[in-house]
Design a protein around this nucleic acid. Structure first.
Lengths: 344, 344
DNA sequence: AGGTCGAGTGTAAACGCTTACAAAATTGGC
DNA sequence: GCCAATTTTGTAAGCGTTTACACTCGACCT
């Protein structure tokens, strides 16, 4: 199967075969105006016959596009991001773009290095898809002025296309569910909200939690709000901390389902369980939540990734036009399962 | 914060600042031989002062490297791949490479398109990290002759560096555990092994299962071997099929933990549970398995990704030298939890 | 008929790097 | 000290695109 490396067809070959100049070929291939239909068809025929594909390197060097898009995620392995990345990658591949994956690995140093040198990034990709990245004002401005096309998931009030859910509303709905079941003594295992480059959703969810309590004229007991990160293990630890050093509430809102899993695990290890000893609700509707009977607020993860990816591609295609940034909020829904029940 | 786009420093600028020629600078920057120490330091000083980074496009075009590596996975969102990808991405980033993520989305058409045009791929990346990809003879030969550096996870007997576990041994160990507990009537919920580009691990694990039974002179009941894919839902469906249309065995080996989760879910929905009605063991040691008390065979996922990534980078660095391909098998370990117990 | 305009096309100069090849500087042996 | 061998450095020709600019050629005005 090893065959002599056929030197790849260049634009020259296409020009020769079609009897036109390189320049015309280049324009025809990119559907620029001022190309006659005759030329168009001649060029595309020749290109097809030769199996010609423009060299991304040459294209980029001469001022064209790189043909790739970066996805930037706080971490790539967590369920939410893995799902969103996969969905976005599919859209990008469909649009002929390569996907460059950049994980910040939850490390501020990685974050700083990346956003500190956007020039480097813009040399390698045409656009950037941001997944729940907390940006400082300066970073935001730099990115907006970098010439990169940008779209994001889960970042509201940002000068580019965004799609997300209403995190505060989701947390509110979850809290109201608990409240409605008679639990006025509610704890929150929040995602971490400290440090600049953290998960931006965490603070919104915390706010929703507070809003729901406020609306019922309940005060937030600071002892019942703990930082659990967004991991199973963080949830487990926070739950242990809650039980051992704070006090057991009547119900718990977990910042995300993975945190809730950890909390359930800790509960079980202590010989307790939900909803017997405490009601627990999460947010996300993780794949496993159904299995574990975790009540939660569901959000369409893959849809968000795919939607944002499409917005980005659209913008890349009609770049130049001063399309105002759009913002889309997708629906969330309360899913009642077995981990929450009426307070006795 | 918006500042006039400072035109990026080029190699010319570095040459000018260091008082040397472009050529020398280029060589110094790439640590090629035949550069005096004096020149070396002058160049790196100048480069540092200017914040110079070589343009990947220009470098690639002129015959150099692209500075990026592709990770090819059957799907990107499944736990195993998400973990491995994240670990590999970290290694690549550390080595100064961009990571291009390519998900085959479990679709043969995507697989074919990718491997049918390796020239395109090699135009965009320097190397490829394959995660559990089943390749035909022809594809394997093409890839080996493509000029791309290659490394893989979970693909034995392949003409490039590979790291993996012994899947047959893992399945054997799991089965022996079951057998040792007195279960001679064992079913297997296997990963799918049909079609060319499937998960290659699946058939190895099935083989290990068969070997363990053979060793005890037990025959494999074809009714008790079903295709469950490698997903939670596949596991659930296979379990239902098993109970409703085949028969309930005494114990079950799930091809992977996710399949086991699905099986447990189906069991619960039917009012049954493990190990009361049936013992279940998985393979992988998924993050959730501990929580669910699933007995399993653990494998180091991130380690495999990182290890293979390092091998690939090493190879890229000393390319040219006829390093023979190495193969590494990492340890697996039986983790006994609550889902398996002695047959009564 | 002379002139203007615009669409379609071509010429040639970037883009920023790598790399033969040639030139210069250094070394070492006599 | 002189020549060959060797190391270090420089010159210039690509790599395959994009794009500013010039050009040709009808159509359309006046």
């Amino acid at each position: 199967m090893l065959q002599a490396k056929a030197p790849r067809a260049t634009i020259q070959d296409v020009a020769a075969l079609s009897g036109l100049s390189i320049c015309t070929v280049s324009r025809a291939l990119r559907n620029l105006p001022n190309v006659s239909v005759a030329a168009q068809t001649k060029v595309s025929d020749a290109a097809a016959k030769l199996g010609y594909k423009a060299s991304p390197a040459a294209s980029r060097l001469a001022g064209g596009s790189t043909g790739s898009i970066a996805i930037i995620a706080p971490t790539a392995s967590a369920w939410f991001f893995a799902e969103a990345v996969e969905a976005a990658e599919e859209v990008f591949a469909g649009g002929g773009y390569d996907t460059v994956l950049i994980s910040l690995r939850n490390r501020p140093s990685v974050h700083r290095k990346l956003f500190g040198d956007l020039a480097k990034l813009s040399q390698r990709v045409d656009g950037v898809l941001l997944l729940n990245i907390a940006l400082s004002e300066a970073e935001l401005a730099d990115l907006a002025g970098s010439g990169l096309a940008v779209a994001s998931v889960g970042m509201h009030g940002v000068p580019w296309d965004n799609v997300g859910i209403d995190n505060a509303a989701a947390a509110r709905a979850a809290t109201e569910h608990l409240l409605g079941l008679g639990h006025w003594d509610v704890a929150m295992l929040s995602g971490s909200e400290t440090g600049e480059p953290s998960l931006i959703t965490a603070s919104e969810r915390l706010r929703g939690f507070e809003q729901a309590l406020d609306a019922q004229h309940l005060t937030v007991d600071p002892d019942l709000v703990l930082d659990a990160g967004s991991s199973i293990d963080g949830g487990r630890r926070a739950m242990i901390e809650l039980i051992e050093n704070r006090r057991m509430p009547s119900a718990i809102l977990a910042g995300c389902d993975e945190t809730a899993f950890g909390a359930l695990m800790a509960l079980r290890d202590l010989g307790l369980s939900a909803p017997r000893n405490v009601s627990i609700i999460g947010i996300d509707d993780h794949q496993m939540s159904c299995f574990l009977g975790l009540s939660t607020i569901s959000q369409p993860v893959a849809d968000q990734g795919a939607f944002a990816a499409n917005l980005l591609i659209d913008r890349l295609h009609r770049s130049g036009l001063p399309n105002p940034p759009s913002s889309h909020v997708l629906e969330t829904k309360l899913i009642e399962r077995r981990s929450t029940r009426r307070r006795r």
